[in-house]
């Protein structure tokens, strides 16, 4: 078949070694930026660290054969939601660099809670799930995803569209109503 012939001309996806390297690259990027989100005191820096985390997670989606999701992550999350957040930062602060420091006691509680949950989660993961990984029969395509989304999940899909509409109107109303009262 012509098409198969053309298909041979397309190179194979990177082998396991390369994808392992990529995984560690993205994982370290994601983890380090997440730590940055926690530790950074400047809210604008926090947002930038969050952007790196989101991008690295998109990279992980690529490695997990979820290309569409990766694209959505980049476009909607990194491109849309984060920009929204940054707008929020700009609109709610006369000087974005201003810092609100937490109290010592709160920091102690936060560290305790974080350590407890981290240990619990890691123990659960290591003990509960065997390390082997099932291989996929074939690479899932966007067509498969589309079938699932508009087949089994049609009603949730429609509901969530309505929800988005409601949210849009609601957010616009919330953000605007106060200003109208403020300036009679």
């Amino acid at each position: 078949m012509m098409i198969q012939l053309l298909a041979q001309t397309t190179p194979q996806p990177p082998d396991a070694g390369a994808s392992a390297v990529l995984f560690y690259l993205f994982a370290i990027l994601a983890g380090a930026s997440a730590l940055g989100v926690v530790l950074s005191r400047n809210i604008v820096r926090t947002a930038v660290f969050l952007l790196f985390t989101l991008t690295a997670v998109a990279g992980l989606y690529f490695l997990l054969d979820a290309e569409f999701l990766a694209a959505v992550q980049l476009v909607v999350y990194a491109g849309g939601t984060l920009v929204l957040i940054i707008f929020g930062v700009m609109l709610t602060s006369k000087s974005p660099g201003i810092r609100y420091e937490p109290k010592i006691g709160e920091v102690a509680v936060a560290i305790g809670v974080s350590v407890v949950s981290a240990v619990a989660l890691v123990m659960a993961i290591v003990r509960q799930f065997p390390a082997n990984s099932a291989s996929v029969e074939r690479h899932p395509t966007i067509a498969d995803l589309g079938q699932t989304l508009l087949g089994d999940y049609l009603i949730p899909f429609e509901l969530i569209s309505v929800l988005l509409l409601v949210v849009m109107i609601g957010a616009a109303y919330l953000a605007k109503a106060r200003r109208r009262e403020g300036r009679p």
């Binding site: 098409i3 694209a71 966007i142």
Partner: peptide, 10 residues
């Protein structure tokens, strides 16, 4: 060529 996104169809 570098195949990037498998989309199905075709």
């Amino acid at each position: 060529p570098i195949s990037w996104l498998p989309t199905g169809g075709g």
